[in-house]
Amino acid sequence: MRSLSDEELIQVYEWMKLTRVLDDRIVSLWKQGRGVGSTFSGRGHEAIAVGASYALGPDDVVAPMHRDLGCYLVRGITPRRILANQLGRATGVTQGRDANLHGIGDLSLGIIGFVSHLPQSMSPALGAAMAFLYREEPRVSMAFVGDGSSSTGLFHEVLNLAAVQRAPFVVVVENNRYAYSTPLHQQMAIDDIADRGQAHGVAAEIVDGNDVEAVHAVTAEAIARARSGGGPSLIECKTMRMHGHAIHDGAEYVPAELLVEWERRDPIAHLEKIFFERDIVEEALIEEIGQKCRRIVDDAVEYAESSSWPDPASLEEGVYAP
């Protein structure tokens, strides 16, 4: 299934590579003791975060979460703003108010920031879609959730309401097999979360979450359907969480062979293989993209680490909107 031109696929690769380089650097900063608080890695989720959000239009809205670094980048949050946020600086998106990728919201870029109570941003994302319906605007809203979220009552409430409203709404479920330490079989007695969409009358598809072409194609189709009045969709992207829940978590509870198996299916290596197989790019370009990403991330680290801390005098600012 192909929905991207070669040029677009190279762009997608650049976003995925930037996501990976930034993610790796964040992990490294924390291991070196240069981080603040905790942080999360989305390693292995690049094809989902980038592939799904690349299919959105500029006026669409998205509610990503803590594994979706690539989504924030594709929507236009710069690595500088992300790292400054991770380090609690005044130049971060939340100006030191919220941690790591939490609360990274920017309405000018169509991003709704998330809270820890997953999937609490599913309902605001649906509300955005309902606002588009009300105003008869051809816009679509997308929410990212995980397998853990799919066990909550809210997940079902939102799918049901989205179906009843026939809202232009797309839910991307990142099924990465673990909710913190709890494996899928202890979370649910079914094989596919997509069944939960169908149960509510939401069109549901399952896709290989490590294959960015597949993710993009299925998402683009769901977005087009939503935009033309066809109602909501759920896309279950099967993947694997390659690091622990958060940076402190060694995830010893994950069988090593599972990680070995999924490492072989790494989404970035997979795309590079496609490039060579289809003779789309030269190896030199891959190298060049990697270097470019590292330069961007080096600059972002320097920017964030040299940024000012927020002024304690600003503590009470912004609790209320003017």
């Binding site: 605001p124 649906l126 606002a131 809210l154």
Partner: peptide, 18 residues
């Protein structure tokens, strides 16, 4: 609304953001 306070209050938040 269906009987879904958690969902429709959250949805109202999304509408308000828009």
């Amino acid at each position: 609304m269906p009987m879904t306070e958690n969902a429709f209050i959250g949805a109202a938040t999304g509408m308000a953001l828009m």
